[in-house]
Structure formats: structure tokens, C-alpha cells
Design a protein around this nucleic acid. Sequence first.
DNA 1: GCATTTTTTGACCGATTGGACAAACGTTAG
DNA 2: CTAACGTTTGTCCAATCGGTCAAAAAATGC
Lengths: 208, 208
Amino acid sequence: MDAASPKRRTRIQNERRELILEAALEMFSQHGFRGATIDGIAEAAGMSKPNLLYYFRSKEAIHVTLMQRLLETWLAPLKELDDAGDPFAELSGYIRRKLEMARDYPRESRLFANEILQGAPRIMPMIEGELKALVDEKAAVIKGWMAAGRIARADPYHLIFAIWATTQHYADFDVQVRAVLGPQRGGDGRFDDAARFLEQLFLNGLKL
Amino acid sequence: MDAASPKRRTRIQNERRELILEAALEMFSQHGFRGATIDGIAEAAGMSKPNLLYYFRSKEAIHVTLMQRLLETWLAPLKELDDAGDPFAELSGYIRRKLEMARDYPRESRLFANEILQGAPRIMPMIEGELKALVDEKAAVIKGWMAAGRIARADPYHLIFAIWATTQHYADFDVQVRAVLGPQRGGDGRFDDAARFLEQLFLNGLKL
DNA sequence: GCATTTTTTGACCGATTGGACAAACGTTAG
DNA sequence: CTAACGTTTGTCCAATCGGTCAAAAAATGC
């Protein structure tokens, strides 16, 4: 069986595949799936198009590999939300981790945003599967905190959406954020300002 | 002078241009600028490609027209924020209007999101001009409310970003929201649930 | 060393892209 | 009715798209 056999890869294969995925992340996150081209990715990766297609059989194969990796990174911060911890500390930590991801991995955030914007044609199963399951689980945790009177009552799903939206905004809408804040305030400090604001908004908003 | 002359248009020209813009909104918002094709837009508008190019000289001309219209609609809700009104009522009204726009004009929201995601290559001047000026003005209004001790102190720019992010999320990430909420909770009621949650979050978050 | 396997490339393919053009077709004012 | 103008289309174009293929070049195992 070919398909089931574990893929043995040479040193060069590992290196070149990383190069390609790095270049593809740049292109897909900026232009979307249809907007990105194999020629463009190949050029950015410093190799010829047939050479790229020697390592990935198609454009979609690159995208699939990228999305699979992405989702693991993506779900990690929410997985850390701990039932047994202090609700405010847990939520505060989650917001901080998500904001750090927007700061350190903006291209991954935009890649994800592009896919969802286009109707999630290639990752719908993962959204309805893994992601929904995890959100259901953590929403129940938050609901537990509310029922125990430890934080104010609010819809836990929409709370999670709000955390996603506000944090990812600083990656997905980065050029707008920087343009509106101007040269001074739009500098490196903008993430610290955002962290302070979001901490206040969510923690105050959930006070009893 | 040709460029400066006011464009006189026949009845048919007005009708067909509207048809094209409607079809283009659908395509651009789903696939981005590069991902959308003239052939696709023409087919969706029910006409041949050369016929479409009789009404718009190029793909970019359609996009520019669409973006110009969009920005007016886009800035309207924030423009209504009234210095003289009650701060909580004003902010609450602004959130409600933005959420209604996400519900009623999701394609416009996604068109805007696509453009910003790609680095705003075609509307950067408007972002740095009109949009920044309006945000500066309204941020000053909010700052005034804070200085007067009418709402809690917080960064007004990041407050506006947070309102944008949370409301537009329900248009831009609609498929994800619906998938996570599931068939029952993801129905028509999701916008009412979102409205209730955001009202609580922001108003509680800004209480003194 | 040599034979085998892996890697790289130039040339090429059919399909699609954005757009040009002239000819044909409709509409309408006089 | 007819001339002028507005509208529509079929055909064509060069460029680019995703992808193939055979052959050359480089690395590797012995």
C-alpha cells in the first residue's frame, strides 16, 4: 500500500518543503487561494515551478499541508483554558496568548481569515469537527464558572467569538490599525496598548 | 476636457452598471480581487464579457467604484456618534448599527475585509485620509466623555477597534460562527444573542 | 570508482486570464 | 423612413494559469 505507508523523507526534502511552505504562507495569506500562484510561490521559495511540483503534487496539496499545521497552532491557546483555575486569570491568560499569536504569527491569522472569508471550502470538516468540539467543551467550562457565581452570566459562545475577533483583528486588519493609530501610536507599542484595553474590557465586562 | 465632464448616462447604462456591481460584489467579496474573474462577474450579471467591458473599462474600475460606494456606507454609523448624547446610549446605538450592518450587508463587510487583508493596496489613501480623520474626531469625543467622568477610562482607539472587530466578525466569519453554534443556535437568532452579549460586554466594561 | 537514486530544469501542454476590436444589432429622434 | 447613436456579440490576442514530461545534473550507496 502506497497511501498508507509512512512517508520517508530525505534531508533535502525536509528542507525544501519547509522553504515552500514558508513562501506559500506568505502568498496564500496575502492573496487567498485563487489569488496565489504556483509560479509566485516557487519564485519566493527560490526554485523553479517544476521543482516545486516535485515536492508538492499540486497547489491544493500545499494549502492542505499548511492548514493542517495551522489548526494545531490555532487551537492550542484555547486548549489551555483550565477548568480548575481562577476564571479571571484563565480568561486573561487566554486573551494574552491569543494576542501574542496575532503579534507573532500574523500571516497564519490572515491565512485562516482568508479561508473562512471564502466560505471555508477546504477546512469546513475541521471547523465542524475538532474546532466545534473544543469550543463546546470550553463553553461548558465557562458556563460552569457562571453557574457557580464566579463571573457574570453571559453567552459563553459569543464571549469566545468576541475574544477571537478582538485579538485576531490586530493581525488581520493590521494595516488599518497602523494607519488609524498613526506613526507614533501605531508602532511596536500598539500590542501592549491593545492588551491593556482588552484586559480591562473583558474583565470589567464579566465582573459580578 | 473629457475626464472632468460630468458623466451623462442612459437608462440602460444605469441599469446594467447596477447589475454588474451587484454581481461583482458577490465575486470580489468571496474570492478577493485576484481571485475574482471578469468572466465570472459577467456570467453572474447575465451578460457577455465584452458587454461588461463596455460598461466598465477594466476589472479594477469595477472594484474602485465598489470601494468608493462602500466607504460611504461604512463610515455612516460612526458619523452618527453624537457628542451631546448620553455616552452609554450613544455607544450602545453605535454597536447596534454596526451589528445590523454585519447582518444586512455581509458581502460589503467581506469585501472590505478582503481589501484590508491584502494590505489595502487600492484604498490605503482613503484609510489614511477620510477614515483616520473620522476616527480621530470620534476618539476625541469618547475621550471627552472619559475626562468628564461619564464612562470609565480606556483607550478610545482600541475601543473603536474592538467594536469594529466584534461586530464585523459576524459577517466576515459567518460560516465559522454558524458551524460552531450548530443548527439550532446558529439560526436567525444569532444576531440577537450577539447584540445582547456585546451590549453587556461593552457597557459593563465601561462602567465607572 | 561506478551504478543507482534523488533533484533540477527547459520545454511544452491545454485552459483560462484580462482585454481589444470590428461588425452586427437595437433604439430613438427627427 | 432613416440617420445617428447606443448596445451586444463573436472572434481574437498575448500573457498567465496549473500541471506534465523527458532528460540533464547532482547526490548517494557501495
